[in-house]
Amino acid sequence: MQVTMKFTLIPAAVALAFAGSAWAQQVVKIGHVAPISGPSAHLGKDNENAARMAIDELNAKPFTINGQKVTLQLISEDDGADPKQGTAVAQKLVDAKVNGVIGHLNSGTTVPASKIYNDAGIVQISPATTAPAYTRQRFPGAFRVVASDAKLGGTLARYAADTLKVKNIAVIDDRTTYGQGVADEFVKGAKAAGMKVTGREFTNDKATDYTAILTSIKAKKPDLIFFGGMDSVAGPMLKQVKALGIPATFMGGDGMCTEALGRLAGDGLGEGKVYCAEAGGVKGPQEKVMDDFRARYKKKFNQDVQLYAPYVYDSVMVMATAMQNAKSADPAKYLPALKAIKYEGVTGTIQFDQAGDIKDGALTLFTYKGGKRTKLDVVR
């Protein structure tokens, strides 16, 4: 009797273990991180929505890996655009044993978090980080689907010199990794194009009064003010530029290049006086693909795309496609497939170079007219 009981209990335990293992393999966890709170929450929520949209669409197909139906589960975290909070939630995702991470939005949170993901062997695709430092670390599992600040800063500088005929510039940045980085790259490009930097001022991403630095800049009479930072600071700053009667053109990177800038700047926006560049962009037949995505997004969430949503959506799709190509959701196994991928997405063709940067990344130049963002050109 005793022998028989042992014989029946052991297979039952083994069967239970196998059932648990099979169930675990059916759920693939995709982490997502962005600022869902704080001044940039509108951009973070935009990113989170797009990640959820991609996950929902894949699950509805249904999604399979190596012939097995898989449920993708989105685990979304809020980093508040704060580096300390960013590393904390990165560790939280590592502890949750996610199969990959889409994020973060801000360079200041992405760069420190990337070491945590790298040490844990987790693949990370950032849909928005533009700081060159992110991929210069050469972490094998770190990728981005947008052009870096090195390209953005140089492109804006050439536009300022060649098209706007700017001679003298003043520069302000918010001291974040992103803001300082894009400003530094712009200054490099400006000097190479023969422009003179008449002043370099600093604020922070929580400040609301810029009177002192703008008064200093006004005395130097620049043709153009370049700002490195997000729209939540650029908007109020533009109001104060107008209040102080500074006639200079205003320019910035993708962090301020949003539809929301018109609302945040109010009458400080002016007409054709603000220029910016978004990392990414499409033209030609690809515009219809992007328009279709925007329409689907609005139907699902009852709001317009803010900025990075198409890149988040493509990031999820690229990661999922790499898993399918590798027939595994194990980061170590699908990483080679991701490095070799050529994916036709909403934002165009996605391929990565040896550093994890997108190949031939596009930039879109914009100005603002009638309070609305108006596209000027897409350049590569």
Rank of each mutant, 00 (worst) to 15 (best):
residue 350 I to L: 07
residue 145 V to P: 04
residue 213 I to R: 13
residue 82 D to L: 12
residue 27 V to F: 13
residue 205 D to W: 05
residue 109 T to N: 06
residue 143 F to T: 00
residue 260 A to I: 10
residue 75 I to H: 06
residue 222 P to S: 07
residue 370 G to C: 08
residue 208 T to L: 14
residue 378 V to R: 04
residue 261 L to H: 05
residue 28 V to A: 11
residue 63 F to A: 01
residue 355 A to S: 14
residue 151 K to F: 14
residue 277 A to T: 02
residue 250 F to S: 05
residue 26 Q to G: 06
residue 212 A to M: 09
residue 151 K to T: 13
residue 52 R to Q: 14
residue 328 S to F: 03
residue 184 D to P: 05
residue 288 K to Q: 12
residue 37 S to I: 07
residue 137 Q to N: 11
residue 224 L to D: 02
residue 220 K to R: 14
residue 303 Q to P: 00
residue 85 Q to L: 11
residue 177 T to F: 07
residue 223 D to W: 15
residue 95 D to F: 06
residue 283 K to N: 14
residue 257 C to W: 01
residue 151 K to G: 11
residue 310 P to R: 08
residue 32 H to D: 13
residue 44 G to I: 06
residue 236 P to G: 07
residue 230 M to K: 07
residue 80 G to L: 08
residue 241 V to C: 13
residue 248 A to L: 08
residue 340 A to T: 02
residue 18 F to D: 03
residue 93 L to N: 05
residue 306 Q to T: 08
residue 367 T to M: 08
residue 35 P to R: 04
residue 189 G to E: 14
residue 218 K to W: 01
residue 170 A to S: 13
residue 285 P to S: 05
residue 348 G to H: 07
residue 182 V to D: 01
residue 267 D to M: 09
residue 261 L to W: 10
residue 51 A to P: 09
residue 177 T to C: 06
residue 4 T to S: 09
residue 242 K to T: 09
residue 302 N to G: 02
residue 214 L to F: 09
residue 27 V to A: 14
residue 61 K to W: 03
residue 213 I to P: 01
residue 91 Q to C: 01
residue 169 I to H: 01
residue 257 C to V: 04
residue 212 A to V: 15
residue 246 I to W: 12
residue 148 S to K: 03
residue 82 D to N: 15
residue 178 Y to D: 00
residue 299 K to L: 15
residue 284 G to D: 09
residue 235 G to P: 07
residue 378 V to N: 00
residue 113 A to N: 06
residue 155 T to G: 04
residue 12 A to I: 14
residue 78 D to T: 03
residue 275 Y to V: 03
residue 335 L to S: 07
residue 34 A to Q: 07
residue 142 A to M: 14
residue 90 A to K: 09
residue 46 D to N: 13
residue 100 G to Q: 03
residue 100 G to Y: 01
residue 66 N to Y: 06
residue 295 A to K: 15
residue 113 A to F: 06
residue 80 G to F: 07
residue 18 F to V: 12
residue 218 K to I: 01
residue 102 I to M: 09
residue 256 M to F: 09
residue 6 K to W: 15
residue 144 R to H: 12
residue 125 I to R: 01
residue 113 A to Y: 03
residue 212 A to L: 11
residue 33 V to F: 09
residue 34 A to W: 03
residue 58 L to E: 01
residue 85 Q to C: 02
residue 376 L to I: 13
residue 257 C to F: 03
residue 358 I to Y: 05
residue 17 A to I: 15
residue 317 M to K: 15
residue 55 I to F: 12
residue 93 L to P: 03
residue 334 Y to V: 05
residue 216 S to H: 11
residue 327 K to W: 03
residue 144 R to F: 06
residue 111 V to A: 04
residue 331 P to H: 01
residue 263 R to L: 15
residue 15 A to N: 03
residue 233 V to D: 10
residue 349 T to A: 13
residue 153 G to P: 02
residue 274 V to S: 08
residue 38 G to R: 10
residue 119 D to L: 08
residue 120 A to P: 10
residue 229 G to P: 03
residue 291 D to C: 05
residue 36 I to A: 12
residue 34 A to R: 08
residue 74 L to K: 02
residue 258 T to V: 11
